[in-house]
């Protein structure tokens, strides 16, 4: 399902003394099946963009096409529910949305709201708990008795249970410990690859954006200022600095090595693995010369 933002502007609390413009003429195209990262400084409008992707917010100007549904300012649309089922959002600190008596019921909440049968919802919940690496016993526990990391997983399961075609992630690993972060990011990548889930990730980690995304957009002061592949985005360090963003560690290191060798590696190394591989290749060639 393609999502296209056209000249989207948004203002919070419009027509009050507290009015706050958050987006200015944002254009962004997210093709079906892609892994899109959105990066940018805090307050640059990333979360606001995300909330437009499933029509939780409607643009004050401009329009968004989500699949074949168009969302515009004044237009009331009956199809919003359809959109919300197809675009699942994992908000920041999603564990704050847990409420039901048991984990099972909480995960079933989403799908059942969209008319999925009880048996089917239950089946999905059981599968998802497994997929997220939680023990079966948690299904009957209260979500509030779990550890922070487990609650996060249950909340994610609650979104995945709706079987969305597009998965939107707002800093999904904030506050987790390193292992939890890696496990969850790997899981999303797995879902993206295996199920072809279109994935939109908002992150502060340049490393995650470089590692997982195939397209990156940069938000700055409410505008989408740059969009392209990771190779394109990270090749312009000066511009990134204008937006108060950094290079991923592996590229920073690559530059140090290149400076020392006075030679360049053929590509930008987006991950540590890639860096090690390219360096090894390069050293081998040097030796053979």
């Amino acid at each position: 399902m393609d999502i296209t933002l056209q000249q989207v502007s948004y203002a919070y609390a419009k027509n009050t003394p507290f009015e706050k413009r958050a987006l200015y003429d944002v254009d962004l195209h997210i093709p079906s099946g892609s892994y899109q990262a959105i990066i940018g400084h805090t307050g640059s409008g990333k979360s606001t963009v995300l909330q437009h992707l499933n029509a939780l917010l409607k643009p004050t100007e401009g329009s968004i096409k989500i699949g074949d549904v168009e969302v515009k300012a004044e237009k009331k649309s009956k199809q919003l529910r359809k959109v919300r089922q197809k675009v699942g959002i994992v908000f920041q600190f999603p564990e704050h949305q847990l409420f039901d008596e048991t984990v099972l019921k909480d995960i079933m909440f989403g799908p059942m709201n969209f008319g999925v049968s009880e048996e089917e919802a239950k089946r999905r919940a059981i599968d998802l708990v497994k997929l997220l690496g939680l023990p079966d016993e948690v299904l009957e526990k209260s979500p509030f008795d779990l550890s922070g990391g487990q609650m996060r997983r249950v909340a994610i399961a609650g979104v995945l249970a709706m079987n969305p075609e597009v998965l939107v992630l707002d800093e999904p690993t904030a506050g987790l410990d390193p292992r939890g972060r890696k496990e969850i990011m790997d899981l999303f990548y797995h879902l993206h690859k295996e199920k072809g889930l279109t994935t939109v990730l908002v992150t502060h980690s340049m490393e995650d954006a470089a590692r997982y995304a195939d397209r990156i957009a940069i938000m700055h002061d409410g505008k989408c200022v740059l969009a392209g592949t990771p190779q394109e985005i990270f090749s312009d360090e000066v511009r990134l600095m204008d937006y108060r963003l950094e290079l991923p560690q592996s590229i920073k290191f690559q530059k140090k090595v290149e400076q020392m060798m006075e030679k360049k590696l053929p590509v930008l190394c987006l991950t540590e693995e890639m860096l090690a591989e390219e360096l090894a290749q390069f050293l081998k060639k040097e030796r053979e010369l």
Binding site: Q249, S250, F253, E272, E273, L275, A276, E277, L279, A280, L283
Partner: peptide, 15 residues
């Protein structure tokens, strides 16, 4: 640390 991860990966590559 990043440098350590890379060191380990390099070793794996035979460097």
């Amino acid at each position: 640390p990043f440098a350590m991860n890379v060191s380990r990966l390099l070793k794996k590559q035979g460097v």
